[in-house]
């Protein structure tokens, strides 16, 4: 059980942190070329929200992230199921999948810009590629974790193929898909931001990078704050769903 005083301390730390930052930045205690006062950042944030400029970037980044993420999950689950059923093909492809999985994939962003231009589509494709292979690996790991003795037991007791699938295989694989999705959403946001930083005309990554090119410190913090809200909302929404659905499950181990 969480003790209430801990929450108090945490709130206190947050307040003290921002108060110290505000005070320090206003009085030159901390380098004002590094930190703009939070109050100024918030004021700027509201200005940009009122002007409608920020929301366009927020929605671009959210759209890219969700489109690439959903496509990657659907595609990854499809290939994962095929490979889960076809043993030999899986074993042939596995080292290649692991090799692709091991590539520092955010570094691939320039290739996607080269192929698909600087628009939204290149970011969606980048994110798709980031999420797709992750999900494939997790689905395969989920298959491997299906308890064979459970399947045998069900079969000797006359369970149909369909029953085995719906009662044993799917419930064991689903938590893995979700574990992959939780990692994938983080990667998806990273992909969107990296793609927008290196070549784009819209999105929060572009917004932050442009602010930095103008040495507009407040702008950078506004962009980071907006990105923080978007990414924490997406990450914790998935986390919450996962907890609600799979509170019973064992630890997912790759």
């Amino acid at each position: 059980m969480k003790r209430p005083w801990i929450v108090t301390v945490q709130l206190f730390i947050v307040v003290a942190f921002f108060a110290g930052w505000e005070f320090g930045a206003r009085n030159g205690v901390i380098n004002p070329e590094w930190f703009s006062p939070p109050a100024a950042v918030v004021a700027r944030l509201f200005n940009e929200l009122a002007a409608g400029t920020l929301m366009a970037h927020v929605s671009t980044t959210t759209l890219e992230t969700l489109a690439g993420f959903i496509a990657g999950v659907v595609g990854g689950v499809a290939l994962g199921i095929v490979l889960g059923l076809m043993d030999r093909l899986r074993e042939i492809l596995m080292p290649y999948l692991m090799a692709i999985y091991g590539i520092p994939r955010p570094a691939l962003a320039p290739i996607f810009v080269l192929w698909f231009g600087i628009g939204i589509f290149s970011k969606v494709m980048l994110i798709f590629s980031l999420v797709y292979f992750l999900i494939v690996i997790y689905v395969i790991a989920g298959y491997a974790a299906v308890s064979p003795s459970l399947v045998d037991f069900a079969r000797t007791n006359g369970a149909s193929r369909r029953q085995i699938l719906s009662k044993i295989v799917i419930p064991s694989v689903l938590p893995y898909i979700f574990a992959g999705m939780k990692l994938g959403i983080g990667l998806a946001i990273v992909g969107a931001v990296v793609g927008e930083i290196i070549a784009s005309r819209e999105g929060l990554g572009y917004y932050i990078f442009q602010a930095s090119q103008r040495a507009d410190l407040e702008g950078i913090y506004v962009g980071l704050a907006a990105l923080g809200v978007v990414s924490l909302a997406l990450v914790f929404a998935l986390e919450w769903t996962d907890r609600r659905l799979f509170h019973w499950r064992r630890e997912v181990v790759l």
Partner: peptide, 15 residues
């Protein structure tokens, strides 16, 4: 951990 820290890179550029 959940924050995409890579977005901090432009800030580090200023710093």
């Amino acid at each position: 951990n959940a924050f995409p820290k890579i977005a901090m890179a432009p800030l580090f550029l200023i710093w």
